[in-house]
Amino acid sequence: MIIDLPRFIAAERPAWTELETMLDDFATNPGRRLALDEARRFHFLYQKASADLGRVATFASEPELRRYLESLVARAYAEIHETRERGVRWHPLRWLLVEVPAVFRRQVGAFWMSVLVTIVGTAFGAFAVLLDDEAKSALVPPQFAHVLQDPAERVAEEEAAANDRLGGGHATFAAQLMANNIGVSIKTLALGMTWGIGSVIMLFYNGVILGLVGADFIAAGQSAFLFGWLLPHGSFEIPAIVIAGQAAFVLAKALIGRGDRAPLAARLRAVGRDVATLVGAIAVMLVWAGLVESYFSQHHQPRIPYALKIAFGIAELAVLTAFLSSAWWRKPRATA
């Protein structure tokens, strides 16, 4: 049995055109909310187009018409069956103050995992430099060659610098720091898709460099300089990279799916919004860290006393901890 196509098209075309017009309108106004009558009409047109597609697929075998109706039904299906949040205007302040800490708290297990890997790396780096003098040159990559210098000499040079050691290039330096650190964080996060193995290596190596430099300066009796230099920007930079590891482990956990019977796609879908929120938080933290490192961390005693820099760093860390803990009392929102 084959339906009378021209007659069928002529009869149904007005409904298809109306549906297509509504869909085009949704596409150009994503935040638009339908009135009840409009929603009912839209649903009716969707069902009508679906029924027409069913008839064409069964009785006509006409590929052009079928493709056209499939396209209409597919677009309408996306609008009708989307149950995730939609059309909600994004409020940056609410996102930062409520959503970020809530997501951090919800995925705090992955954060502690990331902290653990970083601490193990830091301990390895510290022991390596304390036990073997050659460890520094073997482990430090070329871009960090400046840390190979003797700590006492470095401190003497930094403190003796009369004025601006960056020669007025603070903005450029800040931009380079932001780009580099956000790049490292993104790579750490993306490697979560290697079942977390790549992220563990990134976090561990980051910890190794941290431990190596820290132990070297402390062993040389330059603790005040170390903390005065590191804390103001490090109190945001290091947690940001650890949070990148947290996001990576959230992805890795969804990928591995141990103890979760949901299909892989559903597991990844469930954590997608949380990972994206953490990415945004990391970017904000690293922009701040870049500015502080360029404009504040590079100035040393006697221009800025170490006590002041250390106090500033500790205050930042306290604010960050309080901020990330601020949603701990809230009931976690169910993930999408």
């Binding site: 597919a74 299906y77 996306a78 609008e79 069956h81 989307e82 995730r84 939609r86 993104i186 790579k187 996060l189 993306a190 490697l191 898709m193 290697t194 790549g198 997608g272 919004r273 990972v275 994206a276 929120t277 990415v279």
Partner: peptide, 18 residues
Amino acid sequence: GLRLQFHQVLMRNIVRFA
């Protein structure tokens, strides 16, 4: 077949590094 959401766009572009 549902609507593309912002976090999906962000995620696929971030994981591009891997």
